[in-house]
Design a protein around this nucleic acid. Structure first.
Lengths: 143, 143
DNA sequence: CGATTCCGTCCACACCAGTTGACGACTGCC
DNA sequence: GGCAGTCGTCAACTGGTGTGGACGGAATCG
């Protein structure tokens, strides 16, 4: 499934849609796609622009056009976006990294529901345990 | 099908990001978001446009700007399109927002540094304590 | 064969996405 | 007090996204 949504330009992904989605046994024409998109959404869509997008002459369509194309070809809009950028950004956030750890997430969610006094007590306990393992744990290191 | 219009408009979703993602304890300013977006991607991003998007004065940004916003706030681009992604991301954002609570944040950061076995033990302890207070509390995810 | 139609391609332009720059309000600093 | 910085907001402009329309080629039909 993820074979298609991986590392390609917008033009390559659209080209792939043309080649993959052929309910009539042949590729859609640019005009068919344009008219189909117009039928599925409110705005306009010209065949010229469909051609420009597929051939890479334009690569920065608006939200409305992306939604129309995705609706016409029957794919989620996320199909047009790269996951690489997301991952690189996520990796720089310690918080996001922590949220991916099932145990840490569990701990944080439980701690959320405690009243202040209890939570503070738990915080002390957890700190003690953590320092037992690292001996003077170096805090989180940022201001 | 319903790709939008349930959880809210684009403006509402962006507004929610502002309110949820506050690593410094306060909402990002429009200028901070704009500069951050510029730093994470190629191209420009003006604070005025961020403001226009959040307030709903503009609602049809281009692919590049959607990618930049998603990268800055650490959410998948699909967040702006899909309701399913909206829900799953929102629950994570609720947790992230909660981590502004000094004690919860402290607990989570300490737990991060433990080895797997210890962390699992602590998770059990914290769960027990939490349930002592609420009696079988579900994880829930209120904002 | 000519007439019609649909195709992809290209160009010139319109309009709206996005920026610039300035304004008033607010805040800390000297 | 006055100055310097930052904030959100607004109006006017720029530029690129997106369109309309024309051209040549390739079918299909008479």
């Amino acid at each position: 499934m993820a074979a298609e949504a991986k590392g390609g330009s917008l033009a390559q992904r659209i080209d792939h849609l043309f080649k993959s989605v052929q309910p009539h046994g042949r590729e859609y024409s640019y005009d068919e796609v344009a008219r189909g998109c117009e039928a599925l959404t409110v705005g306009t869509f010209s065949k010229t622009y469909v051609w420009q997008l597929r051939t890479g002459q334009r690569d920065n369509p608006t939200k409305r056009h992306l939604e129309a194309l995705a609706a016409f070809f029957g794919v989620p809009v996320a199909y047009f976006f790269s996951d690489e950028v997301l991952d690189s950004v996520n990796s720089q956030l310690a918080l996001a990294a922590a949220l991916r750890d099932a145990d840490v997430r569990e701990i944080a969610l439980r701690a959320l529901r405690m009243d202040d006094a209890t939570r503070r007590s738990v915080a002390r306990i957890v700190t003690e345990i953590s320092e037992m393992q690292h001996g003077k744990a170096p805090d989180d290191g940022k201001a």
